[in-house]
Amino acid sequence: MRNVTRWTVVLIVTLSATLPLFAQQQSQMGPDMGFRNPYQNQQPFTGQELSRWMRDWPDVTKWLDAHGDSVSQAENPSDIARFFRGADLTAYLRSKGWTPDRFGYVTVEVALCLAAVEMETQMPEANSQIEDSIKQIQDNPNMSAAQKQATIEQLRAVQSQMGGFSANVPKSELALVKPKQDELKKILDENS
């Protein structure tokens, strides 16, 4: 559980850093369109970029720690935005061959790919639980037909969103992350 929690925190921190852009994008997309990387206008990352990111992520977090800016100690989105948008970090990322937007894109996509892989792993059990819940709702004599229908529709919507989670990441990226998921989780866990 600790490993999953740490890399999930990385996703939340990274997403919080781009909260204003994400909020603007959500208002344009509508609430039912799902999450898109705020850096979505970029090309999918390559295997070479993933390898570079895996090499550089620990250095970036160490740099942040050395400069008194531990990502894991951020208390609000403005703190996080300062970490990822500050001139010093921008210069540091450029010295490693990254633009801040590209590094941000790869960071968000790695986290989304890991979450998609995790979701795929959990889908069979989740689907089974949802189907059991639907059966219980259908058999519940204390619910009206309208209540049953509304509740079942909500469960189906959740099931559909869970099933479509990996659609939010390019398949080429997912294919690169899957075989490296344990190593990526370890990198995120040890350097967050």
Score class of each variant (00 low, 15 high):
residue 46 T to C: 02
residue 48 Q to E: 14
residue 48 Q to P: 00
residue 49 E to A: 08
residue 50 L to Q: 07
residue 50 L to C: 06
residue 51 S to N: 11
residue 52 R to F: 01
residue 54 M to Q: 13
residue 55 R to P: 00
residue 57 W to C: 08
residue 59 D to M: 10
residue 60 V to K: 01
residue 60 V to C: 06
residue 62 K to C: 03
residue 62 K to F: 00
residue 63 W to G: 03
residue 64 L to M: 11
residue 65 D to W: 02
residue 66 A to Y: 00
residue 69 D to Q: 15
residue 70 S to H: 09
residue 71 V to A: 14
residue 71 V to N: 06
residue 73 Q to I: 03
residue 74 A to K: 09
residue 74 A to I: 03
residue 74 A to C: 15
residue 75 E to D: 09
residue 75 E to V: 11
residue 76 N to R: 13
residue 78 S to V: 11
residue 80 I to P: 00
residue 80 I to H: 01
residue 81 A to K: 12
residue 82 R to S: 15
residue 83 F to L: 14
residue 85 R to T: 11
residue 87 A to W: 01
residue 88 D to I: 03
residue 88 D to S: 12
residue 90 T to K: 11
residue 90 T to G: 12
residue 95 S to W: 10
residue 97 G to I: 08
residue 98 W to V: 09
residue 99 T to I: 04
residue 101 D to T: 04
residue 102 R to M: 02
residue 103 F to K: 07
residue 103 F to C: 06
residue 104 G to Q: 07
residue 104 G to H: 07
residue 108 V to S: 06
residue 113 C to Q: 01
residue 113 C to P: 04
residue 113 C to F: 00
residue 114 L to G: 06
residue 114 L to K: 02
residue 114 L to Y: 05
residue 118 E to R: 13
residue 118 E to Y: 06
residue 119 M to D: 02
residue 121 T to H: 12
residue 122 Q to K: 13
residue 123 M to Y: 02
residue 123 M to F: 00
residue 123 M to C: 04
residue 124 P to S: 03
residue 125 E to R: 11
residue 127 N to H: 14
residue 128 S to H: 11
residue 129 Q to D: 12
residue 130 I to D: 09
residue 131 E to V: 12
residue 131 E to G: 08
residue 136 Q to H: 10
residue 136 Q to P: 01
residue 136 Q to M: 11
residue 136 Q to N: 11
residue 136 Q to I: 02
residue 137 I to M: 09
residue 138 Q to I: 06
residue 139 D to H: 09
residue 139 D to C: 01
residue 140 N to T: 03
residue 140 N to I: 01
residue 142 N to P: 01
residue 143 M to T: 09
residue 143 M to H: 07
residue 143 M to P: 04
residue 144 S to G: 14
residue 144 S to M: 11
residue 144 S to D: 10
residue 146 A to P: 02
residue 146 A to K: 14
residue 147 Q to F: 01
residue 147 Q to R: 10
residue 147 Q to W: 04
residue 148 K to Y: 10
residue 149 Q to A: 15
residue 151 T to F: 05
residue 154 Q to H: 12
residue 155 L to K: 10
residue 156 R to W: 10
residue 160 S to T: 14
residue 160 S to P: 00
residue 163 G to T: 08
residue 165 F to R: 12
residue 166 S to H: 15
residue 166 S to G: 11
residue 167 A to F: 12
residue 168 N to C: 05
residue 168 N to D: 07
residue 169 V to K: 07
residue 169 V to L: 06
residue 170 P to V: 00
residue 171 K to Q: 15
residue 173 E to K: 03
residue 174 L to P: 07
residue 175 A to Y: 00
residue 176 L to Q: 07
residue 177 V to F: 01
residue 179 P to W: 00
residue 179 P to Y: 03
residue 180 K to T: 02
residue 181 Q to C: 09
residue 182 D to T: 15
residue 182 D to W: 05
residue 182 D to R: 12
residue 183 E to H: 05
residue 184 L to E: 02
